[in-house]
Design a protein around this nucleic acid. Structure first.
Ligand code: MN
Ligand code: MN
Ligand code: ZN
Ligand code: ZN
Lengths: 136, 136
DNA sequence: AAGACTATCGCAACTTACCGCAATAGTGTC
DNA sequence: GACACTATTGCGGTAAGTTGCGATAGTCTT
C-alpha cells in the first residue's frame, strides 16, 4: 500500500501541497525546520502558505510518517520517521551539536520503564549542557 | 550580601520591575510561566510590559538567581535557582506530569561526561513519552 | 463525465517570545 | 538634595507557530 493509498484509506486526501511536503522531507539529508521546508517548496509552488506546511507536518506526524525534535529552545525540526533515530548533545554556550547513538540513552529509557512505567522518547529533545571545550 | 546589593555590585540596577519579578518567583510554589509572572505582577503594577518580564528573567538567570525548564513543547517555565532541582516525565497523550529524582538521571549524565566530555543539564527539558496508563 | 461531500487550502488575525530605540529612572558622586 | 551617567523601561515591530473561516479542490458515487 502506497503512502497516498494509506492516507486516502484513513479518509484524508493526497493534495499537491501534502505531496510537496513529503517530497521536501525525502530530499532533506537531516532534520529541517518548517521554514526550510516551505522555502524548498516555494521554488516549484510559490503560493504555498506556511500554515499549510505546519498543518501537513502535524497530519503526517499523526499518521506516523514524520517526527519532530527540539534542538535549541525555539525551533522545531522535522524528519521522516523511517530515517535512523539518534540523540543530540547541544552546547548552550557555543551552540555546537553532536549526534549520539540511542544505545547511550537506552539504559535510562529502560530504567524509566521499569521504575515509573514510562515509555520515554529520549530523542525528542536534545540534551543541553556544556561541551568539552566550553566546560573547560 | 542581599540580592539587591549583589545586583548593584555587578553594575546592574534594582528596579521596581525587577523586584516584582523576583517577588513573583518567591511567591510561586512551583515552576511558572513568564505570562503567569506578568499576570501576577499586573495586580499591583498594571503597566508592566511582557518584554520587561522576559528581559528580567534572562538577566536574573545570567546572575544565577533563576533557571528555566521546558515541560511541554512550547512553554518555558521558570523557578528560583535555589529551589530543589528535579527531572520531569511528561505524557504526550494525556499531559500528565511526574517529578523524578535527579539520581535517576545521574548515571546518564556521568556517562555523557565520560564518553563525550559533555556536562549535561538533564533537568532542562522534560522527558516526553507515554505514561503507564497511555502506553497500555 | 458530472455532482455531492467535505478535507484542505490560503488568508488574516492572534499568541508567545525577542529586539531596537528613544524616554525614563536607578546609582554613585558632589 | 541636585547632577551626570547609563541600565532599564515601554513601545512598536518581527519571527515562529496556531487558529477561524470562507473558498477550493480531492475523492467517491452514479
Ligand atoms: Mn531552554
Ligand atoms: Mn515536541
Ligand atoms: Zn560549547
Ligand atoms: Zn498519559
Amino acid at each position: 500500500m502506497t503512502v497516498a493509498d494509506d492516507i486516502r484509506a484513513k479518509g484524508m486526501r493526497m493534495t499537491v501541497q501534502r505531496r510537496l511536503v513529503l517530497d521536501a522531507l525525502r530530499r532533506a539529508r537531516h532534520h529541517i525546520t518548517a521554514e526550510e521546508i516551505a522555502r524548498s517548496i516555494r521554488a516549484s509552488y510559490p503560493q504555498i502558505d506556511p500554515s499549510t506546511v505546519y498543518r501537513n507536518l502535524e497530519a503526517l506526524e499523526r499518521l506516523g510518517y514524520v517526527t519532530h525534535t527540539h534542538l535549541d529552545d525555539r525551533v522545531t525540526r522535522w524528519r521522516r520517521a523511517d530515517s535512523p533515530q539518534h540523540g543530540h548533545l547541544v552546547c548552550r554556550r557555543c551552540g555546537s551539536e553532536e549526534e549520539i547513538s540511542m544505545s547511550v540513552l537506552a539504559p535510562l529509557a529502560k530504567r524509566l520503564k521499569g521504575e515509573h512505567g514510562f515509555s520515554a522518547d529520549l530523542a525528542h529533545s536534545a540534551v543541553v549542557g556544556l561541551c568539552r571545550e566550553c566546560a573547560g
